[in-house]
Design a protein around this nucleic acid. Structure first.
Lengths: 182, 182
DNA sequence: AAATATACTTACTAGTAGGTAAGTAAGCAA
DNA sequence: TTGCTTACTTACCTACTAGTAAGTATATTT
């Protein structure tokens, strides 16, 4: 694979997670990389192809992470999951679901489909970890695992969105709230 | 005031909350309202003027709601607050913070400022309600009021974003999680 | 009756969007 | 050495973006 392809993918992902899918253009990619607009189209014929490639790459990364964490205790798995968001925050980047989910209605159908798939994967992984922790007695939360999973995913996602607005460490507050409640 | 001005405001707000600030244009407003592009510019010279007017109107609505709820018990105030999100979900609309916050970095400075102001108002109102409920013994959550406030705001905000993706009632799950934890 | 304000329309601009057709230089394969 | 593939560039297209200058019909004020 060419370096250019990877460079495009990396920059596009950064732009999407900084500004959103509808707020970046092929020009925002071609100019910094010092290539022509058409060169971006050579690697990714349409903007949707680029978007899909980014989502698929992220799905792979998450699957790899989940596998890596497989032998950890449930609490440590949750902490590792929250760690993804902390790493994003350190780079002033949103998570990919927060970046793309917002624009879901305006996304090409093919992108909507892979995004929904990615969302379902993360959600059911988290539900599984919470379920396991509850059965093993490591966790003692009262609601159902899917309810707790939704609380965690939603609050993490928005923490990254609200950071630039509140200028306060919302993520740290939310992290504490969640860990207390497990 | 003209009806057209209000019509523009209403439609623009709907579009922003459906698709985001960067995914609607003056054409999306002028065509359905059967007026010319320049008529929209007559009422709102720049897109930022339109955006600011929408945020200011929402700030007023929230201030009015908060006043209306003033004599309610803390738990009922929280439920009323969650009710705003439930009403949004029924209309398949995001909350204005979820709709605009996402695009914060790409927003004109003047819009960023009023948005930050609106965010701070909601956040401190919620913190106050939680504080009051904790002191009065109505609530028994362990974390600080601001931590709980951030958990509630963030999870509500994303619930509306994730609804079309998961096709599941994330908001109901999150609502239950939160009410249990108070 | 004349002046002014309101609420537009007509007609335009410069810039950007995503996308494409055709050409090219370099490397590899038969 | 001819042909094919890869990775581009040049040059272009149509559609749309926010925004503006100038004109107009109607209503209100003086």
């Amino acid at each position: 694979m060419s370096d250019t392809r990877t460079d495009i993918l990396n920059l596009a992902e950064k732009l999407i997670r900084q500004r959103g899918y509808n707020a970046f253009s092929y020009k925002d990619i071609s100019v910094p990389l010092q290539i022509k607009n058409a060169a971006v189209h050579y690697h990714f014929p349409s903007k949707a192809d680029l978007g899909i490639a980014i989502i698929e790459r992220t799905r792979m990364h998450f699957a790899r992470d989940a596998k890596k964490w497989d032998q950890l205790a449930p609490l440590d798995q949750i902490k590792a999951f929250i760690g993804i968001y902390e790493a994003n925050q350190a780079q002033r980047l949103r998570c990919f679901m927060g970046a793309l989910g917002h624009s879901y209605e305006t996304l090409p159908t093919a992108m909507q489909e892979v995004l929904a798939k990615a969302s379902a994967e993360i959600r059911s992984w988290l539900e599984g970890v919470l379920e396991k922790g509850k059965t093993s007695g490591a966790f003692s939360f009262k609601e159902s695992p899917i309810e707790k999973a939704d609380l965690i995913i939603t609050s993490m996602l928005s923490s990254l969105i609200l950071l630039p607005i509140t200028k306060d460490d919302v993520l740290a507050n939310v992290r504490n709230s969640i860990l207390i409640s497990l």
